[in-house]
Amino acid sequence: MIEVRQLRKRFGDQQVLDGVDLTIEKGESLVIIGRSGGGKSVLLKHLVGLTHPDSGQVLVDGRDISHLNERELLAVRRKFGMLFQSAALFDSLTVEENIAFVLARERNHPPQEIARRVAEALEMVEMPGIQKRKPAELSGGMRKRVGLARAIIYRPEVVFYDEPTTGLDPVVSDSIDKLVVRVCERLKVTSIVITHDMRSMQAVGRRVAMLHLGRIYTSGTPAEMMASTDPVVSRFVRGISDEKVHTF
């Protein structure tokens, strides 16, 4: 469904992506792991068409989206839903208006249908009855759930998650992981999760790809990654820093 070929991106002197090759099949649940600042979010933005690469291709259903203009990309993005790291809810709108954003903009859905689908989406993320609240009144976990409801209400084919558990306590993180799995199973969507949370990786991933030095270093099941004897993978999944290298 999504194929990345030799993707390269440089910001100033830093080569963030240096020839990424990756194939994501329909219905797959893929987790991309890697060090902070290693280019995971940049890769995700390329997959959604938010950033244009210096070279390489991103093929969605066989069509290269890397050089489409913003208006052409809008139609492609209709297949995608995305949960941002900060949830990125629109401050000026209520929860209901945030979730119904796409449906309301399409102008061909009656208000009753929109209200019903918003209520369904909120049920799915276990946050019923908060339609009239403003994003500023929600906690971090609640914002992520509302962000996810907004991303799935129009039934996308692929849902992208950018660090869905970052900044949340372990209990809320676990509930978000379970929610990601449930959304994937119930809606039969392809899930692509960016994370450096190993617990989250094991909970939501069926396949894991590790981004290291701007390339996909290795991939496998979560169990294979946890049991890996490769020093780079092993140190990362166990959270052991290399003392010779500054990690911050």
Binding site: L50, R78, A88, D91
Partner: peptide, 22 residues
């Protein structure tokens, strides 16, 4: 500017909405 730094403009784009239009 605040919408940009809090990724709300990127969120608009992922919701198939051109920021210029909206």
């Amino acid at each position: 500017g605040t919408m940009r730094v809090t990724e709300q403009i990127d969120a608009l784009r992922t919701l198939a909405t051109h920021p210029i239009d909206y």
